[in-house]
Simulated scan of single mutants.
Amino acid sequence: MISFLWAEDENRLIGKDNDLPWRLPADLKYFKETTMGHAIVMGRKTYESIGRPLPGRTNIILTHDSNYKQEGCLVLNSKQELLNWAEQNDSEVFITGGSEIFKLFIDEVDQLYVTKIHATFEGDTYFPILNWDDWTLISEKKGLKDEKNPYDYFFQMYKRK
């Protein structure tokens, strides 16, 4: 099963200068809890913005560079390689960015985990446009707003119809 996991603002913004445009520790905790024990897939630039493999997960980097290597990560070079790996290895594989990787798997994704942040930010990277008519909201939980998480935000999960 292929799932997307991301956070976005009201304008579908997901990134700024290869980083998140906001500080929202509760979303990072949600990311960790949701993906723990599963495979996470990211492009090379997203991986390099994190700078290390995330513990407790199979870290997969998708890149066209067949010479690219990172200790502690599985490096794959094509969409088909990842689909083959997913079929053989994991019940749920999380695509975690960036924008180009989301676009690449938009027709294969089965579930969406999105943190909708009710604010707008400056940035340079947007989530691809989805046809929301193809999706059913199956859960929504309001995140706790406090001094460390200063925005209204919701954790939503969708399944493809």
Rank of each mutant, 00 (worst) to 15 (best):
F105K: 03
S66T: 15
K159L: 13
Y151Q: 05
K29A: 08
G51P: 02
R23D: 07
K159Q: 15
R57G: 10
D17H: 10
P25W: 01
E33Q: 15
D133Q: 14
L112E: 01
L104T: 13
G37Y: 03
L28F: 12
V109P: 03
P53H: 07
D19W: 06
T34I: 11
T58A: 12
L83S: 07
Y151H: 10
A7L: 09
Q80G: 11
R23S: 12
S78D: 13
Y47G: 01
S66M: 14
T63H: 09
H38M: 08
T96L: 01
K141T: 13
I40C: 00
I14C: 02
T58M: 13
R160Q: 06
I117S: 00
G98C: 04
H38Q: 11
Y153H: 09
L137K: 11
M36Q: 14
V109F: 08
G37V: 03
S99G: 09
E81W: 04
L54N: 02
L74T: 11
E33M: 14
D110K: 13
Q111Y: 14
D133P: 02
I106N: 09
F4N: 00
D107F: 04
T35P: 00
D152Q: 15
V75T: 12
Y153I: 02
A39F: 02
H38N: 14
E147A: 15
Q88W: 05
V41A: 01
F31I: 07
Y153K: 02
T34V: 10
E48C: 08
I138M: 08
K141Y: 06
L62N: 01
Q88F: 06
R52A: 11
D9G: 06
K79I: 11
E122W: 01
D90A: 13
D107K: 12
V93C: 05
W85L: 09
L20H: 02
Q88G: 05
L112N: 02
F94L: 08
E10C: 15
I117D: 00
K159R: 14
P150M: 10
Q70E: 14
F155N: 03
N67E: 15
T125W: 00
K16E: 04
T58K: 12
V109A: 09
S66A: 15
I101G: 01
F31E: 03
C73F: 12
L54K: 03
Y126E: 07
T115Y: 00
F4A: 03
D9A: 06
D124T: 03
Q80K: 15
N84A: 15
L28E: 06
L13H: 02
N59S: 09
R23V: 05
E71L: 12
M36V: 08
A26H: 12
N67P: 01
T58Q: 12
E71R: 11
L144C: 14
I60S: 02
K159G: 06
E92M: 09
Q156V: 09
K148I: 12
N59L: 05
I117G: 00
F102Y: 15
E81I: 04
L54I: 08
I95M: 06
N84T: 14
E147P: 02
K148T: 15
K32T: 11
W85H: 08
K161L: 06
N67R: 12
S91D: 15
A86C: 13
N67V: 07
G56C: 06
K142S: 13
I50D: 07
I50W: 07
D65I: 07
S91C: 13
G72N: 13
K29M: 06
F94G: 01
K161R: 10
V41Q: 00
L20V: 04
L13R: 02
E87T: 11
N84V: 12
N84Y: 09
